[in-house]
Amino acid sequence: MSLLITDLDNTLWDWFHMWHTSFSAMLNRLSELSGVPQNQLEAEIREVHQARATTEYSLLLDELPSLQERSPKSSPMQTYDEALHALNSARKNTISLYPGVKKTLREIKSRGVPVIAYTESISFWSEWRMRNTGLDGLIDTMYSSPDHDFPHGKTPESIRMYPSSDYGLKKTEHRHVRQGLLKPNKEVLRWILEDFSVDRRSTVYIGDSLMKDVAMAQEFGVHDVHAAYGVSHDREGYELLRRVSHWTEEDIRREKILAERPDIAPTRTAHKGFSELLDMFDFQGA
């Protein structure tokens, strides 16, 4: 095999655990500080997330009506900074790679095989996770969704608190896919193989979602691997995600259609971890 394409969230790291831990910490503290019931906050949060098309919106607090009412003289993000501190602290404490990921990537790259990442997550937080897990440079190129929209007059640069050198990726090239492009659309795989001039029969794709990652890989004709070790069974946590998610009714209908497809049977399954790739394939540079 001469090319590896990998999903990021719940394939290289446990995105769901990190999101749930950090978001819950923020939500609990925000309700305590503001006196706004959590169910009301959740309803308002969902509207903002849907408007911004992401569940990781950086300016969330400033757009919640109940917090705007309670913070007439300063922005809610300033007033409820303690809640943001709880979010950021939990996020930093829970971000980590699955065991064996870094060692496996180094081994594959040492054999002259490019490693490509493709994620539906937005640009800013994908870059943050790459930097904070030490993957900047171990991944050759990352394809991701663009960043979320910002309010009129706001730019990413205008809200940054640190030097520009603290943002972005230094070694990994970052390319954006078209806004709104979602798995299992196989066109991104077509672009990647064209960009790297690699035959699909020499390409491996690994991801945690049967309906998105595995189905997309099979439809396009690359070798598929299901990252079963990354599938979360935290039902309570998923209920919170559904209540505050950016998913629209159209998204929910789309997920239902995907779920009603004939069972997707992966060609190969990694049950224990990412390192199983080395036993499945002979990775050698072209």
Rank of each mutant, 00 (worst) to 15 (best):
A83W: 01
L67Y: 05
L87K: 11
S71N: 10
T55M: 05
K92W: 15
S75W: 11
K102W: 05
E82Y: 07
E63I: 00
S89A: 13
S66L: 05
E69A: 12
E82M: 02
Y57L: 11
K92D: 12
S74D: 13
P99S: 01
R70V: 01
D81P: 11
T79Y: 13
P76A: 03
K102Q: 08
E69W: 15
N93C: 13
I95Q: 13
L60T: 03
S89R: 09
S66R: 03
E63F: 03
E82I: 03
D62Y: 07
M77T: 10
H85T: 06
L87H: 12
Y98K: 04
P65C: 05
L59V: 05
Y80G: 08
A83N: 02
E56N: 13
G100Y: 02
P72G: 02
I95A: 12
R91A: 14
G100D: 03
A90I: 04
Y57G: 09
D81L: 06
P76E: 07
G100H: 07
N93T: 10
M77W: 07
T54K: 01
M77K: 09
T79M: 06
L87I: 08
V101R: 00
K92I: 04
L67D: 03
S89V: 06
P99I: 02
S66M: 04
T94Y: 12
R91M: 09
H85G: 08
T79K: 10
I95W: 10
V101H: 01
L60V: 09
E56V: 07
P99N: 00
S96Q: 15
E63K: 07
S66G: 05
L60P: 05
G100I: 03
S66P: 01
S75V: 06
Y80T: 04
L64I: 04
S58W: 11
P72H: 08
R70Y: 08
R70H: 14
L97E: 13
N93H: 15
L61Q: 01
L84Y: 11
V101E: 00
P76Q: 03
A90M: 03
Y98W: 02
T54F: 00
T94F: 14
S66V: 08
P65Q: 09
N88T: 04
S58D: 11
E69I: 14
V101Y: 03
T79V: 11
E69P: 11
P76F: 06
S71Y: 11
A90V: 02
A86F: 14
L61N: 04
D81W: 15
Y80H: 04
D81V: 14
T55W: 10
Q68W: 05
T94G: 14
D62I: 02
Q68Y: 11
P76L: 02
S96D: 15
P65R: 06
K73Y: 09
A83P: 00
S58C: 14
A83T: 01
Y98D: 08
S74R: 12
D62R: 00
D62V: 06
S58T: 15
P72W: 01
S74N: 15
L60R: 05
D81M: 14
E82S: 09
P76Y: 04
K73T: 15
T54N: 09
N88Y: 13
T79R: 14
M77L: 15
L64N: 00
D81H: 11
I95R: 15
E63Q: 09
L64S: 00
Q78M: 06
N88M: 10
